[in-house]
Design a protein around this nucleic acid. Structure first.
Length: 281
DNA sequence: AAACAGGCCTAAA
DNA sequence: TTTAGGCCTGTT
């Protein structure tokens, strides 16, 4: 069992398993963590602001031991052994290279409503703009959170957004996605779309329910399923993944070969493809 | 300046 | 069942 040392402002957790902050936060699954000059990351998740770094084989994160146990441990998916999972997705030499390159990635267990909303925003958008829209949304509609003298903002509840109009969302500059955001907020707030319940279904059923919503297609649905519903078989396919598959599996690739680890395989492929390292086989 | 960006929707084969 | 064009906005 990893030791948890409880300091005044931060705690320290020894890690043996894969855990690379840069890869975790830059592999495209989240939008609210930013790297500082010292290599630490600061961000807001699950209603908490935190700063985290890795030092001498330990995670060092602001907050209490209870925060770690109640929030961050699950958020960083510490219940799973990624060294083992990484071996399991090595179905060929390409996946061997991709998973070696991406070693350290972990799939975050993020807030469901936030993930849904963020990936609605992500459609036909680049990462800087996605982050900007999400940050504006939090600043305008979220609650302030203090961390080491700095003010951050939580992601607003679905109920807070549900009562707004398209006009209210105009500061976000999110264009045609605004009605999609409102529809999702209202469905989540009313219980018509029960994300917790979806997490108990299989990927196919959850996907069908999500795609019944306007503005949610297969890619957004799969991201929500993988990054927040904890259903590991989801395999989001975006333009990068299409390139990766075309290059390395011209005959096609059935994600089912990865079973329950398809989502992790996707993350390795995606991260590898985006790095440009995958282009020279 | 025009094209494009980590999709989705609709219309049309 | 698959494919083309349009869509807000910001950036190149």
């Amino acid at each position: 069992m990893p030791a948890v040392i409880d300091g005044a402002q931060e705690i320290r957790i020894e890690i043996e398993d894969d855990f690379d902050l840069h890869k975790i936060f830059e592999c495209g699954q989240c939008f609210r963590w930013n790297e500082g000059a010292d290599g630490s990351y600061t961000g807001v998740a699950m209603g908490k602001a935190a700063r985290i770094r890795v030092e001498n084989g330990s995670i060092v994160i602001t907050g209490s031991a209870d925060d770690w146990r109640n929030i961050w441990s699950a958020y960083f998916d510490m219940g799973r052994d990624y060294r083992t999972l990484r071996r399991q997705v090595c179905i060929d030499s390409y996946m061997r290279a991709a998973s070696d390159f991406g070693a350290g990635i972990r799939i975050l267990n993020q807030d469901r409503w936030e993930t849904l909303c963020s990936f609605i925003i992500s459609q036909c958008n680049n990462i800087p703009r996605i982050k900007k829209i999400v940050e504006t949304m939090c600043r305008v509609f979220g609650n302030p959170i203090e961390l080491q003298g700095e003010t951050f903002y939580s992601f607003p509840d679905a109920g807070k957004i549900a009562v707004l109009s398209e006009k209210d969302l105009s500061p976000l500059r999110c264009g045609y996605r605004a009605p999609y955001i409102l529809a999702a907020a209202r469905a989540v707030d009313s219980g018509e779309l029960d994300l917790d319940a979806l997490s108990k279904l299989n990927a196919q059923s959850a996907r069908r329910a999500l795609m019944a919503m306007p503005g949610i297609g297969p890619k957004v649905a799969d991201c929500v399923i993988l990054f927040s519903l904890r259903i590991g078989s989801a395999f989001p396919i975006d333009v990068w993944m299409k390139k990766a598959i075309a290059q390395h599996y011209p005959q096609g690739l059935d994600p089912a070969v990865f079973g329950e680890n398809a989502g992790l395989a996707q993350q390795y492929m995606f991260y590898y493809q985006r790095s440009g390292m995958a282009d020279t086989p």
